[in-house]
């Protein structure tokens, strides 16, 4: 069992490092979040709050934006990333999956969601699950 999963584990770790890089190097401001000015204002507030380490306040702002645009996949994804940062892995996975539901054919968004799911699974010790998520991220791109 161990022998079998060790190379897989290595692979997952390697991919996840790539995934991490993807998460951090991405410029979030470059995403066109919404054409609703209230939503963009809330997202910008949330990002400021994030930068200041006020994670709960940021989550509140994202949720407020989601009440205005519940079908906006970027908002779901932002919340997923935040939960990942907070160590709420199950929530992160659920939110990223929700984002995927609304992502349509936005490939980069989907890839990012799968990376978040992979990260979350990795943290929870679900290596095969993480691997399959990272695979999907690679496919989506």
């Amino acid at each position: 069992m161990m022998r079998h999963s060790f190379p897989g584990l290595l692979f997952v770790v390697a991919v996840s490092i790539a995934g991490c890089a993807g998460l951090t190097t991405r410029e979030p401001e470059s995403l066109p979040v919404s054409d609703n000015s209230a939503v963009t204002a809330l997202v910008s507030t949330a990002r400021t709050e994030l930068a200041n380490g006020k994670l709960d306040a940021a989550a509140g702002s994202f949720e407020r934006a989601l009440r205005i645009e519940p079908r906006n996949p970027v908002l779901w994804q932002e919340l997923a990333k935040l939960r990942l940062q907070q160590g709420q892995y199950q929530q992160a996975e659920g939110l990223a999956a929700r984002s995927n539901g609304w992502a349509g054919d936005n490939k980069s968004l989907r890839a990012e969601n799968w990376r978040i799911i992979g990260q979350a699974r990795l943290k929870r010790g679900d290596y095969p699950g993480a691997q399959s998520a990272f695979d999907k991220a690679a496919q989506a791109n």
Binding site: D56, G60, L66, Q90, E93, G94, L95
Partner: peptide
């Protein structure tokens, strides 16, 4: 959604929580 103290200090936020239980 939120609970504040009498003085208006944030005490608790009840955040959105989701879990996928049925495949899409």
């Amino acid at each position: 959604r939120e609970v504040l103290t009498a003085e208006g200090q944030p005490l608790q936020r009840y955040s959105l929580s989701i879990e996928q239980v049925i495949e899409p």
